[in-house]
Design a protein around this nucleic acid. Structure first.
Lengths: 191, 191, 191, 191
DNA sequence: GATGAATGAGTATTCATTCAT
DNA sequence: AATGAATGAATACTCATTCAT
């Protein structure tokens, strides 16, 4: 009995997710050029050819991983919100950073790798800006509302700080005291 | 009649510097595995083989570039100093960060790439710790002396911040407002 | 729909045999370092890359060729036999040497090349001793039973003689009078 | 004061001998393609360029080593002698084989390597025949005079035996019982 | 006579991608 | 949908040889 269209779609979605998940871990661990398609296939328990059934090539694979990752993060943070953050929401956002880092360490490591690699970065420039711009805008608005002297510098400072925390955390999650640092930030930026 | 030893030494040093400089730019631009020895040779206007006259292999090349870079930075900052930073020295250090970033953008980009790349990182782990440990210690001592509640978190926060600034600056030097951010840091951390 | 496992296995075995055969001829003709993987591929009518689908590297290739060769020879001669050779069996063994040389000239040439090449020899040392030791032991036992004064020297002499015959035969199979020499040996060693 | 022509000639001869000696050891140890000109230069304590001052290329170097080696051996054995060997002379020749192997192990190993390598062999084919032919002729004459049934087979057998002994000796000089084997040959072939 | 920097063709090996089944 | 054999271009690295000094 042939499978229904629905079932086929399910299989496709599952396989695609499996490939993406496997590839993400490996890219984060060994870098983009350091990870071969063969290894991804082997690790995922499928054939090399099958990957090309779902992704047109290696670049498409990493691009999809990153962009889909952004989508999830955006959903979580709802960074597109028009309104202005209250202090409470900001605390929620900063505390959320910690748990989102812990739960998606591989993704964030990959994110940093991609940011450093101009060639790969070009592939996702547009999506990257779509992701980052509203976030930065929200931060600027937040500081404007707090009445600080240079809200743009404040927003950039906080953005850089979050990047730096991400960097240090993904490199050595065991030893980097992320939670006490987040507390410190809340103390320094919200009072 | 052969050249004098002096002449040979001169030639060697100049060529080595040329290769290191060229390779650093390319590594920073395209990553370690993304940069081929052929490209380095082509860009430097020499033959592939000659690189191997000066560096035993690709790893030796990047290792030498990073370690020599550290040496220069250490000399500038004198991070091995035993004493404790005064506020004045801290300001000097932070302002120095800005100019050292501007003058060695490629090196710092390479530094971040290397930090993200576990396999390359292994090559220079020892030298990296020798460079970083005293710097972090100095920061901790500085915050201890200021009497803050959690000096280690403060030091790590400032360290992460400097990493984040480096990251944002090397990715887009034109648009990142590094100087006003440094001023803000001085304002936030020294008062 | 993929091929059946059986089909894949068939393809693999045929290709592997083709590569081994081609490589053996070339190694025997031009030596180990004198034979490039490119040339083997070209001669076999396949791509360079395919060789690495079947053998992990050049060393693995020559090692497999030699070891598989030994296996065949051992089967033919049954050198592991525990008992002692009769004169009749010794005649059979010596006459067999002639035909085994004629039928596997390339292999024996390769065998000699490998013996002369210390670095390649190291790769197969163990297998080589497993092959040679029982053969030599059988020869010693044979001469012991014949009651000659120095059976070890006799065995070594005969061994060296067989090596020498192999050497002369593979260098110039057309002109070396192998059969009359074997007859002479039978005459000189068995009476 | 400039050196006299005589002195220059002396220097040339000494340097040439040094290069030949060094190269011979290395070729015997690591094979022809396995030995680089750089290594020879380093081992001999001279520059790469200097080797090309004395030998037109690598092939010329090995060719000269082999041919000069033959010349010395021929002188020692005087294989060009027209007359026929007496039994006494044959004993002297066989015993001499042992000492000549012990004193020139590297040369004989190189000789075997070259014999196995068709490409290199071609370079010295003529000189090789000039060396071997009279030797074989002398052996044939010796056996003719002894009145054996098949003197050519006898000569070839003895020749192969000497090759085999050389092979076994150069591979493992410590353990191969060359002298008792030579005694055995004298016993088997002269009685 | 002597040096060693420099070249460039060559080597082993890897890997993204294709395609017949 | 799925396989893995096959390709070929690219990569790091080696080395005989040249040549200005």
């Amino acid at each position: 009995m042939p499978r229904t269209e629905e079932q086929y779609k399910d299989i496709r979605e599952q396989k695609k997710a499996l490939i993406k998940e496997t590839a993400m871990e490996l890219f984060a661990q060994k870098g983009f050029s350091g990870t071969s398609m063969s290894l991804i296939a082997k690790q995922a328990g499928i054939s090399k050819g099958l990957i090309y059934n779902y992704f047109t090539n290696k670049e498409d694979l990493i691009k999809t991983i990153i962009i889909d990752g952004f989508k999830i993060i955006i959903d979580v943070f709802d960074t597109n919100k028009d309104g202005v953050l209250t202090d409470e929401e900001m605390v929620f956002f900063l505390k959320g950073t910690s748990s989102i880092l812990k739960e998606n360490t591989s993704f964030w490591k990959l994110y940093l790798i991609v940011m450093m690699q101009a060639d790969v970065m070009k592939l996702i420039e547009n999506e990257f800006m779509e992701f980052l711009a509203p976030l930065l805008k929200t931060l600027v608005q937040y500081f404007e509302q707090k009445g600080v002297k240079d809200p743009v510098a404040h927003a950039n400072l906080l953005g850089a700080l979050l990047d730096g925390i991400t960097l240090n955390y993904v490199i050595d999650p065991e030893h980097f005291p992320i939670d006490s640092i987040i507390d410190l930030i809340i103390d320094k930026f919200l009072k």
